[in-house]
Simulated assay, not measured.
Amino acid sequence: MVQNKGAYSSQYPHRIKNSGLSRVLARISSLALPLLFLLALGACSTPSGPGASTQPSGPGYYTVQKGDTLSSIARKFRRSNSQIIAWNKLSDPNDIKVDQSLRIAPEGARTAGSNPASDNAAASRNTRTAEDDRADAAAAAADRKDPVDWTWPASGKASSGVGQGKKGIDILGQLGQPVMAAAAGKVMYSGSGIRGYGNLVIVKHNSNLLSVYAHNKTIVVKEGQMVAKGQKIAEMGKSDSNTVKLYFEIRRQGKAVDPSRYLPSR
């Protein structure tokens, strides 16, 4: 079995350590995928540890939730990306962290919520819109022209899907149970260098679609390897997670889409 420790193989010379998923997808983009992956969403990690500092809070601030990106936060509060970047003096707008406090209004201004909790609750309710659903449906229809034959990547109870700040689904299971490729494709990343995802595998299926498999106990495939639908690629675990589960995403042109629109009923 193969346990790749977070760096590209000799085929892929770009080394990645403690990077966000958006950066990894951007580097994959430079190798094989469309440039739209540069707009891919960030990692789902929750930073912690003794280095964490006290952050501002109160009206005009928003606490970053799992699944947030700079663009999604800007849309929630009807701001531009450049405003959020300027108000927070962000040197790397792709590197926002869960639980980070961001100013989402000019100093002295008030937002609709009276405190961060209400702002966050309102934003979460509005995370997924009818427009998002229509966009996902249109994307799935377009992909039928270059069809991918999907299967579930693991057995077990699955969460209801994207929304409420989530980009993918959690599939609960047993430690060490097989994690399978949800469709045939090429392994583009195999390692543990992306904080918050643990032992991670990314598989490219065609020019538009890829899938993400996180929190594995052990990875059994190498970067550059071709895999078949249903082939074992990892064993379920709890790396960078409090529970044994598989965190699974499907991404279309770098944007997470609702897996239920692609996976078969079960």
Rank of each mutant, 00 (worst) to 15 (best):
Q174P: 11
A141E: 10
S114M: 15
N208G: 03
M180W: 13
A141W: 06
A137V: 15
V220P: 03
D170N: 00
G163H: 01
M180L: 15
H205M: 02
A158C: 04
A130D: 13
K186Q: 11
T127E: 11
K166V: 05
Y189S: 11
K166S: 02
M188E: 11
K229R: 15
K145R: 12
P116A: 13
D133S: 13
I219W: 00
D133F: 13
Y247W: 10
Q174E: 15
K245N: 09
N115P: 00
Q174T: 15
A122F: 12
W150Y: 14
T111W: 09
N120T: 11
A138V: 08
V187A: 01
S190Q: 03
T129G: 08
G156V: 01
Y197K: 01
A117T: 08
G224I: 08
P147D: 02
L172P: 06
R125M: 13
G196E: 09
G185F: 00
N126T: 12
K145W: 10
G224E: 10
S192N: 15
R251G: 02
V162N: 07
A137T: 15
D119A: 11
N120R: 15
G230T: 03
T151C: 14
A137I: 15
G168T: 05
K167W: 06
G156W: 10
R134D: 15
K186D: 07
A130R: 14
M188Q: 05
V221P: 08
L172D: 09
G161W: 11
A135V: 05
W150H: 13
G230A: 09
